[in-house]
């Protein structure tokens, strides 16, 4: 069999472009970016090595400090809130309620739209002169105040609202599937023992759904780290540069300020942080599964 396959040239020819593509477009570009972070490149890449100077500069750049603080606050809150909202919605939909399909469609539709669209919608709704605040004032609630998008210390949190609106549906869909894959016998057993439903959820269902929850958290955090479009559309990184994220910072230094060295250093820092968090999970998910036998 092995001989027969070796003689067959077609599969080798078919897979060769993938080798080139993946080695160049993924591995090569990544290594190139890392290399650039040790150089003094400005508009164009040049091989003038400056050691760790770009990193020193990066960690003393106010904009980077803002961006990295923002992304932690943004990611953690976005994940916690989406997870809670998504889980509660999934539990609610799992109670044999009426019109389940319609409600699920309503909850999930924002996920089908682009981050740009989501960002623009919430930019308007959260605009104090036009959106929610104005509507409340018109209704006679004069003291209602919601000015997050124009407040430098709160702008990043306004993006979370848009993120939750768009992402909770995904969490709900994942959680609902998780809930429904749980053995129904558990519910019967709990009923016989007279355990209240909420207790079953907290003590039995949630622990059993650990893999589902991990999947949801990983998905949400990968999305959060990449947060770019939604920030561009909702606040544009402002007011000032108060709601910058690392993705915005990198794009800004690569393409607007034309400081490739510093942008590459920021990329490398993101790479290291993401790797520390996701590589263990990644191997667990894909390569252990492999051994269990596909």
């Amino acid at each position: 069999m092995a001989n027969k396959r070796r003689r067959n040239l077609a599969p080798v020819l078919a897979i060769a472009p993938f080798w080139v593509l993946i080695l160049v477009a993924y591995l090569g570009t990544m290594l190139f970016t890392i290399l650039m972070s040790f150089t003094n490149s400005k508009t164009l890449p040049k091989l003038e090595f400056v050691g760790l100077k770009q990193y020193q500069r990066l960690f003393t750049t106010d904009l980077w400090i803002t961006a990295s603080q923002n992304i932690w606050a943004f990611s953690i809150l976005l994940i916690l809130i989406s997870l809670t909202v998504g889980f509660l919605l999934a539990v609610a939909l799992d109670q044999k309620i009426r019109a389940e399909d319609t409600i699920r469609t309503i909850i999930l539709y924002p996920y089908a739209m682009s981050f740009i669209v989501t960002g623009l919608i919430w930019q308007w709704l959260l605009n104090p002169q036009l959106g929610l605040q104005k509507a409340m004032h018109d209704l006679g609630w004069e003291s209602f105040s919601f000015t997050w998008t124009q407040d430098p210390s709160m702008a990043i949190y306004s993006i979370i609202i848009g993120g939750v609106w768009q992402g909770s549906g995904l969490v709900m869909a994942i959680m609902l599937a998780g809930l429904r894959s749980i053995d129904q016998e558990i519910w019967k057993a709990a009923k016989i023992d007279g355990i209240p439903d909420w207790r079953v959820y907290i003590s039995i269902v949630i622990p059993m759904m650990r893999p589902t929850i991990v999947t949801a958290v990983v998905l949400m955090s990968l999305g959060a780290v990449k947060a770019y479009d939604i920030v561009v559309a909702l606040t544009g990184g402002g007011p000032g540069s108060s709601s910058f994220t690392p993705a915005l910072f990198i794009m800004n230094f690569f393409f607007t300020r034309q400081n490739v060295g510093l942008g590459a250093a920021a990329c490398t820092v993101v790479l290291v942080v993401v790797s520390v968090f996701f590589v263990p999970w990644f191997y667990y998910e894909y390569f252990r599964e492999e051994k269990r036998g596909h």
Binding site: I22, Y26, T29, M30, M36, A247, V270, V274, Y286
Partner: peptide
């Protein structure tokens, strides 16, 4: 494996060299 790993990293890492 390399391809999947690439999928988990932010696109900004690949954009400029591309």
């Amino acid at each position: 494996g390399l391809l999947l790993l690439g999928a988990f990293l932010p696109y900004q890492l690949f954009i400029y060299p591309l």
